[in-house]
């Protein structure tokens, strides 16, 4: 759905269902240079399972107008305001890559807001190499191609997708190409500058889930494991794919999230 939010046309995907915020709300937040289509195989899945799904395009990304946020904190504040605007309750946050940093910060600033937090291919620190930062500024399209190549595992490289007929390299590039040109550069800079991840990780006191990728070249597995070790009460899984694991292993990821959500509901009952 399109809404006018903070004076800008903003797209918020709802997984093909009307938003019913009296239910548990799953808020999916995309990574650097991505948009709501990052979660194309999760949004409809969980909306049709009866959850309320919010999957926004951050400002300047996908179908949303406006200027991209310039820091992880600014991203977190924007999402907080959006969740309030949409009157979302019982929120489970799912972040991919940069979205994980945003989730950490959101939970740090508003510790009572979330009831669960899920990190997909994430870490608490994402340092970006200078070459990619420069390329995102000088030649964003080339940077998209590079990220799409680095971001997929062997399946993606061989054009293998569970979605019939799809090729994630072509699709990934065109998803990134929907955003305004500055979006990737500003996102990567925001990641690179974020220093509060370790502190924010230690402050997590809600059930957490981390799903990491064995062949992740964007947020390497080693960094992801170190991150998971800091968090209290964090269930973790490793899938044999690249950074865009929600595309490469959608069914596995959905089942892991479903199981986590079931446990979360049971915790409440107890």
């Amino acid at each position: 759905m399109f809404i006018n939010f903070k004076g800008a046309k903003t797209y918020v995907g709802t997984g093909g269902k009307n938003l019913e915020t009296n239910k548990t709300t799953i808020c999916f937040i995309h990574g650097s240079g991505q948009n709501h289509l990052s979660f194309v195989q999760q949004a409809r899945y969980f909306a049709y399972k009866g959850y309320s799904v919010i999957v926004p395009d951050m400002p300047g990304h996908g179908f949303s107008d406006g200027n991209p946020c310039r820091s992880i904190k600014e991203n977190a504040e924007w999402i907080y305001d959006l969740l309030k605007e949409l009157k979302a309750k019982d929120i489970v946050f799912v972040g991919h890559s940069q979205g994980c940093l945003v989730g950490l910060e959101l939970n740090k600033i508003y510790p009572e807001l979330l009831k669960g937090i899920i990190f997909v291919a994430g870490s608490n620190t994402i340092s970006v190499n200078q070459f990619l930062l420069d390329l995102a500024s000088s030649n964003p399209k080339k940077a998209y191609k590079m990220m799409v190549t680095w971001g997929h595992g062997k399946d993606g490289a061989m054009s293998i997708a569970s979605w019939p007929g799809h090729s994630y390299f072509g699709e990934g590039f065109n998803v990134m190409n929907m955003n305004i040109e500055d979006a990737l550069k500003l996102d990567l800079e925001a990641c690179n500058e974020y220093q509060d991840g370790e502190d924010a990780s230690k402050k997590i006191n809600i059930p957490a889930l981390a799903v990491l990728a064995q062949y992740d070249q964007m947020t390497p597995l080693k960094s992801g494991k170190k991150f998971v070790d800091i968090i209290n009460n964090c269930e973790s899984h490793i899938l044999d794919c690249g950074h865009f694991l929600q595309a490469e292993r959608p069914k596995e990821l959905n089942l892991i999230i479903s199981s986590y959500l079931d446990k979360l509901e049971n915790i409440e009952i107890i």
Binding site: M158, S159, I160, P164, G165, H166, S167, F169, G170, E171
Partner: peptide, 21 residues
Amino acid sequence: SNPTVSALEQRIAALEGGTSA
């Protein structure tokens, strides 16, 4: 859709540089 046909589709999409076929 069919898995064999899909393999063909994905091969063509990759060769053309498209999103899908």
